[in-house]
């Protein structure tokens, strides 16, 4: 295997890992505040279609990016209102959000199927990406660098800031946090909105960078993998990074095997591999943690202010 090919593979891994990392970090913060949002897949699809539609219409992918975050955050707001204010069941509401996002994105995206879009370019000038090694460092989409910064930022926020401490307190013991005087619902609203914005950003990474096009169900269940990665990561940003790149590797294996004409295994098996790998990884993690997990104590439970 020559160096060029290795670099190409490493860059594919980073590309496949980035949306998982961004969406996963968003969901990690949401879950740390004690809310389980299973609507990541739906929000990603809304982000993907909004980003594509706005980028195509305006001609500016960056505006598409912002619109994707706002649209997905708006969808997250519906979820937040239902589970936080109306105390609806979080599992059911998250599923509803995914079904809603799938339908709405197909509806909005219908006129955009088969159209090309201005894509989000590279962050650094082409002069910096002449050799394979330089390409590995400077040749990525801006979102790849953003996802790495986001990992550090989420770690720093959760572990080194007062706001992060409050968020964790709300997730571990909402009634105690409320008794001290912290605004439990407000913290959770903000966390859910952040999770939505990140899911939207991850979604439009598919439609504006990776593919770049729009098709129904473009994200193909990657939002669910992002949720599984939060469990895999034991709610730790550093492990989320490792998990996302592990899955980036699994997804890349499928792409590379196809490209290389590798035909010992059926292509359908390779397509199923990320989902099988998710189940295997969840099983291994759960077996290792039998009896105690790192999950926030209030995860998925409704909160109602008392006095």
């Amino acid at each position: 295997m020559n160096f060029d090919l290795l670099v190409a593979i490493l860059m594919t891994i980073a590309g496949a890992a980035t949306p998982l990392l961004i969406a996963g970090l968003g969901e990690l913060v949401v879950e740390k505040s004690g809310v389980l949002n299973l609507g990541v897949e739906g929000m990603m699809l809304i982000g993907a279609v909004t980003g594509f539609a706005v980028a195509t219409t305006t001609g500016y992918p960056v505006i598409g990016l912002v619109a994707a975050m706002l649209a997905a955050a708006a969808a997250a707001l519906i979820f937040a209102f239902l589970v936080l204010t109306l105390m609806a069941n979080q599992v059911a509401t998250g599923l509803a959000l995914t079904i809603f996002g799938t339908g709405v994105s197909a509806l909005i995206g219908a006129p955009f199927v088969g159209i090309t879009t201005p894509t989000l370019g590279l962050l650094f000038p082409h002069a910096l990406t002449d050799t394979p090694l330089l390409r590995l460092i400077f040749g990525h989409s801006p979102l790849v660098y953003f996802s790495l910064i986001l990992t550090v930022a989420v770690f720093w926020f959760l572990n080194r800031t007062r706001a992060g401490l409050i968020l964790r307190a709300v997730g571990e013991s909402d009634s105690a946090a409320h008794a001290i005087g912290y605004p439990v619902l407000l913290v959770r609203y903000l966390a859910v909105l952040f999770g939505g914005a990140m899911a939207g950003l991850a979604g439009c990474y598919y439609s504006l960078v990776l593919t770049p096009m729009w098709a129904e169900r473009l994200t193909a269940g990657r939002g669910w993998i992002a949720i599984a990665l939060v469990v895999f990561a034991s709610w730790r940003p550093g492990r989320m990074l490792a998990g996302a790149y592990l899955f980036g590797l699994v997804i890349t294996m499928e792409l590379q095997a196809k490209a290389a004409g590798f035909n010992i295994l059926a292509p359908e098996f390779l397509a199923a591999l990320p989902y099988i790998a998710t189940i295997v990884v969840l099983a291994v993690i759960s077996a290792a943690k039998r009896g105690g997990t790192n999950a926030p104590a209030c995860l998925g439970k409704p909160f109602r202010a008392t006095a």
């Binding site: 059911a92 599923l95 509803a96 959000l97 079904i99 809603f100 339908g103 509806l107 219908a110």
Partner: peptide, 16 residues
């Protein structure tokens, strides 16, 4: 896709 949107709205409103 309208069908799916109506179906999801129904679940949203029910949960609400």
């Amino acid at each position: 896709a309208a069908t799916g949107v109506f179906q999801a709205m129904m679940l949203f409103f029910l949960l609400a």
